[in-house]
Design a protein around this nucleic acid. Structure first.
Length: 577
RNA sequence: GUCUCCGUAGCUCAGCGGAUAGAGCGUUGGCCUCCGAAGCCAAAAGCGUGGGUUCGAUUCCCACCGGGGACACCA
């Protein structure tokens, strides 16, 4: 299905062109035609304000221009009426018959409904989460995760072959501190008196890892080098992060190891190449990137006096690697704490001779957790932060995804834990999912009673159903916009709108009734309509990474579950708590 | 201080330069013998301030006020 908006723009373009050929409009370059959606349904399904835009070139009042264009518009199969409204709008109304027929197209398309093709044949890479494996996944990190994962879904929905990637910072000083922290706790449990490292990670999970090492290795690691602790701890934490992500339906295709950039020497090659281009120099015992040459406000250190690289260097090498892989689009999803450094890294790859214009950086603002009116800071090092798992236990994975998605990434997000806990029944998540459940319920019930939609006559659908179908037809445009603007919140807003028009209609338009006598042909048409609604609702939910429940069950209040003992079933369409 | 993001209804937020600025929650009032009331119907209530660009500004630009974030040889 191509976008209606584009088809209507083409119609308007033809109309203007015809008027110009006929001499009723002067010759001028036709501007980019933006077809919009009127807020008021009485103004039609689509509108164009082109008459206002070109009034200067034409030298006539917009209302008159609109009438001239209207008179030259070609006939189409999908438009029922084209009206002119002051001060010069062209209003388009879709044909009811055409709208009703879309039900069959939607059902036929199924899971791929509103699959678009502007990304067909192209590749995209989306990098998200990329948290250091120094502790459990925090709520803040998962905001980027949900945004990135949903963008990846959306890119697939427009045809891109998408690689979902996690950049695993398993090198560097942070990891040494992690290793030392675990070693200290390990020796502590064995009863040795040890000094805990000054900058060490104090979270409870460090003790858990140490205890695990005791359980598996006993005291055999007493004299093991820090590096052993570091490697084992990183692996344990990474596994835990993966399992946490899986709970909110985030599964990456590729874990890119920072290590590998050292193993293949590309980190040091990067320095050499910068030097060759005279974009790196030595000063005060450190190596500096001459980023001012490319417009930065000051030069940046890339190799410390200790000989160790700063984070910038492997990041530059990593981004070079991404561009080397030839993706048509590279999306980086970072938190606001990286907002200042992301451009520096791109300057680095530019300095190396790569074109960073395929990279789109999405910055999301922080998540502030509020509990009992008090803000909770989230610092991995202090060990005082709210873990994703904790939040998932509280409100469920679908709610975590939806609440994060519903907000513009650019805005700071306040997550009130108390509110989230009491969310329960007043939750928009359930409102949306319940629409899907209701469709499923109808299909189930009609199956039981042997009613099929075979030979359904869609002209039997009423205005209520057509209103919902019109809303369903918007999904293609929503996907298109969400991709163009990298704005996944458009999807969340749409989902709630779709549920909002669905529920009142469900209430009025029954397939089965003990009270009214509904003719068989009407029942069949309605059943097919609900089947299509289910398809669109499911597509919307899946794009958001949410489940598509067939039944509504009250979610049990969480008990003492932890990440590791929760069964994970990513393929299931059902909510099984 | 510099840079950056954000100020829209009581709350949490949508809003793609267009016509009467939307939704959920909350509040007030009215609705359940029927596909699950986790629902339906209705009401009250809003663009931080001041300029500018434009035929038209919540949207773009500038200033101010208020809030978040970033400004390391930490990542």
């Amino acid at each position: 299905m191509s976008l209606l908006r584009q088809e209507i723009a083409a119609v308007v373009r033809q109309g203007i062109g015809a008027a110009q050929t006929a001499g009723t409009l002067p010759a001028f370059a036709i501007p980019v035609l933006k077809i919009e959606r009127p807020k008021n349904a009485s103004q039609g399904d689509y509108a164009s304000a082109v008459a206002m835009q070109i009034q200067k070139q034409v030298g006539k009042p917009p209302l008159e221009i609109a009438k001239i264009i209207q008179a030259h518009l070609p006939q189409t199969g999908f438009l029922a009426a084209i009206e002119v409204a002051p001060p010069g709008f062209l209003n388009f109304r879709l044909s009811d018959q055409w709208v009703a027929e879309q039900v069959d197209h939607i059902i036929a398309a199924g899971d791929r409904v509103f699959q678009e093709s502007q990304g067909a044949g192209k590749t995209a890479q989306v990098e998200y989460v990329s948290a250091n494996p120094t502790g459990p996944l925090s709520v803040h990190r998962i905001r980027g995760g949900v945004i990135g994962d949903t963008l990846a879904n959306l890119l697939q929905a427009v045809g891109y072959a998408v690689t979902r990637e996690y950049y695993f910072n398993n090198a560097g000083e942070q990891m040494n501190i992690l290793g030392e922290s675990v070693r200290a706790r390990y020796l502590e449990i064995l009863g040795d008196s040890v000094e805990f490292p000054k900058k060490g990670y104090k979270g409870q999970y460090i003790r858990m890892i140490a205890a695990m090492l005791i359980a598996f290795k006993g005291d055999t690691m007493r004299d093991a080098p820090v590096n052993d602790f570091r490697t084992l701890a990183a692996t344990a934490i990474m596994e835990r992060i993966k399992s946490s992500m899986r709970r909110v339906n985030i599964v990456h295709d590729n874990f890119f190891l920072e290590n590998s950039l050292y193993e293949d020497n590309s980190v040091w090659q990067t320095v050499d190449e910068l030097r060759k281009r005279d974009l790196a120099y030595d000063k005060d015992g450190a190596v500096w990137f001459k980023s001012t040459e490319l417009g930065d406000e000051k030069d940046r250190v890339i190799v410390k006096t200790t000989g160790a690289p700063t984070y910038r260097l492997p990041d530059m090498a990593y981004h070079r690697n991404k561009l080397e892989r030839g993706f048509d689009l590279v999306v980086d999803v970072f938190g606001a704490d990286h907002a200042a450094t992301a451009p520096q890294v791109l300057l680095g790859v530019k300095a190396l001779g790569y074109d960073p214009s395929v990279v789109r950086t999405i910055i999301h603002q922080m998540v502030e957790l509020v509990e009992g009116g008090e803000a909770r800071r989230m610092s991995t090092r202090k060990g005082d932060f709210v873990e994703l798992d904790e939040l998932v236990d509280d409100v469920g994975p679908d709610a975590v995804r939806y609440f994060i998605l519903a907000q513009n990434p650019n805005t700071g997000m306040v997550f009130d834990l108390e509110l989230a806990r009491t969310q329960g029944d007043e939750n928009p998540v359930y409102r949306i999912q319940n629409a899907h459940v209701r469709c499923a319920g109808i299909i189930r019930k009609t199956d039981e009673r042997g009613l099929t939609d075979e030979g359904a006559d869609l002209s039997k659908l009423g205005t209520d159903e057509l209103t919902v179908i019109r809303k369903m037809l918007e999904l293609g445009e929503v996907i298109d916009r969400a991709v163009t603007d990298m704005a996944p919140q458009a999807l969340a807003a749409y989902a709630l709108e779709l549920a909002g028009v669905f529920h009142p209609v469900y209430d009025r338009v029954r397939v089965l009734s003990d009270q009214e006598d509904i003719p068989l042909d009407v029942q069949k048409a309605r059943l097919r309509f609900y089947r299509a609604a289910k398809v669109v609702l499911a597509r919307t939910l899946k794009l958001m990474g949410m489940t598509t429940p067939e039944f509504m069950e009250r979610r049990e209040r969480p008990t003492e579950t932890t990440a590791t003992d929760v069964a994970i079933d990513t393929d299931s369409d059902n909510t099984e708590a």
